[in-house]
Design a protein around this nucleic acid. Structure first.
Lengths: 220, 220
DNA sequence: GGTATATCGATACTCCATTATCGATATACC
DNA sequence: GGTATATCGATAATGGAGTATCGATATACC
């Protein structure tokens, strides 16, 4: 436990958690690394290494107690302390994220959305407020917002990003299909659907032309 | 050119392409690996190795001719031959994907969406049709659809997946936050927002507690 | 209580992606 | 046309993630 953790491991942790939550509460008290691995498509050694980073509840002969393991992963990922965030760009994708209930379970709370076109402003069906872009800076500074989510078109993304950074945001989650420039100390995570699609359609093409590598493009 | 290509390289190729498209048509005819790397945050050697997989248009002293390079990447990624797809789950995320204009540029054409609740059926604002789920199998078989996009809640995802596979779909793009089981020969790509968020919020937490590693969580 | 066994955790190994080094070469300039 | 130079491309070195092996140990069963 408490070793250096790699990005890959970090990305797998939520998957373990998702699976643990699907287990019936009345079922087995413990689960083995092998069983977890088979359910998710990972090797059992990899599962042990991943879990060793966040929990030491593993017991020989029985495996990991489901309740303790769940708690340990959640603690590590910080799902208990909530992160406030703002979202910029109330288009379709922005609204989809706004109304996604699951974020709260991941410790993320979108406090408000912003958009430059006035007709989008007001209340969203999700119950979240959509405010004019001009109010962004003020709100971020007042509420000490640290995370900004960008769902505007690519052409506006850098400008929005600059405003967010100027408002004290420390991390940017970018869904616009473009590369953003941020200062050293600001964390940037790009969500690029084209990159994912490239992997998928390429392996589809490959498998059709009988080349090689038919399956399992995903993780690992 | 034409060496084995890694998944990582494959994921970066669309990023090069995106950047190339932002260059003014009247500007420099050529661009160097160093310039590309600086714009996107990669090392110049990595850029050369990536591009070597898909193009041999690089010239000493000048770099890569923008037009040729663009064409080579697009050819490699298959953006010229269109892939038909169906989407299942006309919720907010599903509709967002439906109306995303950018897909066509990536060689993806969503021919129709499906949903089990009748009130969602009919025409979407995007112009795409939303059909009852019962018609899924028939349409897939008739049109020989090879790619299925899943945007239903996690609880229904496996059932939808099974129907898609049973309808002859060869690749699944899964946006539901759950792990799916598919036959060996079916390609599965999971889009997991929780995994991305985990990386982001963890590094945010880290940078605050002054541990280490302040920036650049993203690719590489 | 003793013993067999399933499973964990640590160490060692392998493999692949990234990074560094170096020679080759086409262009630009004189 | 000759020469200097920026840049590419190939080969080698490094680093890190994933995988295998093996001993340790807690549990279950007799």
């Amino acid at each position: 436990m408490a070793k250096e953790i790699s990005v890959q491991t970090l990305q797998r942790l939520p998957l373990y958690l998702q699976y643990l939550k699907t287990l019936p509460p009345k079922g087995e008290k413990s689960i083995s690394a092998r069983a977890l691995g088979e359910a998710l498509g990972f090797g059992e050694i990899q599962v042990r290494k991943d879990l060793a980073c966040v929990s030491d509840s593993g017991r020989p002969k029985t495996g990991y107690p489901a309740v303790e393991l769940t708690r340990d992963i959640e603690n590590f990922l910080g799902y208990d302390n909530v992160n406030d965030a703002v979202l910029v760009g109330a288009g379709r994708l922005g609204k989809a994220l706004l109304s996604y209930e699951g974020f709260r379970a991941y410790g993320l709370n979108i406090v408000a959305a912003f958009d430059s076109s006035p007709e989008k402003c007001g209340g969203d069906e999700s119950g979240k407020k959509i405010l004019p872009f001009s109010k962004l800076q003020n709100l971020c500074q007042r509420m000490k917002i640290e995370l900004g989510i960008i769902t505007v078109p690519a052409s506006e993304a850098q400008a929005v990003c600059d405003v967010l950074v100027g408002s004290g945001v420390k991390a940017i989650w970018n869904f616009a299909p473009t590369h953003l420039h941020v200062p050293e100390e600001v964390i940037l995570k790009n969500e690029n659907i084209a990159a994912s699609l490239a992997v998928l359609s390429k392996s589809l093409a490959k498998s059709e032309s009988q080349f090689l590598n038919p399956a399992a493009v995903n993780e690992r």
